[in-house]
């Protein structure tokens, strides 16, 4: 299967005096979940609109498999904007079929796919209901269906999990996992760092119109690791406080988070020092959460500015 690649190269956009995107570059590979993160006003929505070709960049290029994005015809996009809207008086099915046909689906095919997805999301009995008769949660599910009904080449979801109950979050994750397997472009923008951490393989953090962090999530976690470890035992380990070469960072219920301060100390030598003193229940390398990295980077950037 040919690998898909979406490239954003040195893209800039300003509205009047305000620079919204400043020479932004990143690459999204097919088959990976790309998280576009950033605080409010960072330029995420503008960037997504440019990828969708709703607005055009002032400079730079957006390429899909090496071809200029706006010149490619027949490329299908699925888009779930953060502020979602539907046609209130239309029925669920006729509206989904409309969106499907706008993406070159045959009417019959659109109908079948719409009913299939509605069934999967547990709302097949609402197929002929008017949109304004649905609850907010159900309307959101209809919007999801509208975004991936036509099996898009590029799927962009802005805050996809906001307002969804846990059961439907799981269903959505399943659908996205299936989509990922097709090796297509998937971009998620969210404020929910836990969700991003669960879903994304690649993170791009934007702040004040620029990229401040870009890379695979695992690499980033490694990069921002604090050289800290967590050890948990069945009895108190007070002697750790006196141990040379380590520093206790946090302590709670016989669990200790510590950093190795002496370069000559290794994990093996540390285990040698505590051997036979306690029964160890858990030992792990502490990785920074995405939330921590996000806060840290944004604060650092803001301080630098």
């Amino acid at each position: 299967m040919e690998e898909k690649l979406l490239e954003v190269q040195e893209v800039s956009k300003s509205f009047g005096e305000q620079q919204v995107i400043d020479k932004l570059s990143f690459r999204v590979k097919g088959g990976e979940t790309f998280g576009l993160l950033g605080p409010n006003g960072a330029g995420k929505t503008t960037m997504m609109r440019m990828i969708m070709n709703i607005i055009r960049p002032d400079s730079g290029a957006i390429l899909y498999n090496g071809e200029e994005r706006r010149k490619i015809k027949g490329l299908h996009f699925g888009y779930l904007p953060e502020e979602r809207g539907l046609y209130p008086r239309a029925t669920v099915l006729e509206m989904l079929v409309y969106f499907g046909t706008l993406n070159n689906m045959a009417r019959r095919k659109a109908e079948v796919e719409a009913i299939r997805y509605l069934d999967r999301l547990g709302m097949v009995e609402f197929t002929d209901s008017r949109v304004n008769q649905l609850s907010k949660g159900m309307q959101q599910k209809v919007q999801f269906v509208a975004a991936f009904l036509h099996d898009p080449d590029v799927l962009i979801l802005d805050e996809p999990f906001a307002g969804l109950d846990p059961i439907n979050q799981v269903v959505l994750q399943e659908i996205l996992t299936e989509y990922k397997k097709k090796k297509r472009i998937l971009i998620i923008s969210t404020h929910q760092m836990e969700q991003a951490e669960k879903m994304c393989d690649h993170i791009c953090l934007i702040n004040q119109a620029r990229v401040i962090l870009d890379g695979r999530l695992s690499d980033l976690k490694k990069k921002y690791r604090e050289n800290a470890y967590l050890i948990e035992s069945d009895s108190p380990m007070d002697y750790l406080h006196e141990m040379k070469g380590i520093k206790i960072l946090e302590e709670k219920n016989n669990a200790y988070k510590f950093a190795i301060t002496d370069r000559s100390m290794t994990i093996t030598s540390f285990f040698g020092l505590i051997k036979g003193k306690v029964k160890i229940r858990k030992f792990e390398i502490v990785e920074p959460s995405l939330h921590d990295i996000f806060i840290k980077m944004v604060q650092k950037e803001s301080a630098g500015a």
Binding site: R49, M52, Y79, E83, G85, Y87, L102, A147
Partner: peptide
Amino acid sequence: LMEKNNRVIEVLLSYA
């Protein structure tokens, strides 16, 4: 007016 106010316009402009 409706498409602008309820933001359907954004979805439509991404398809057409």
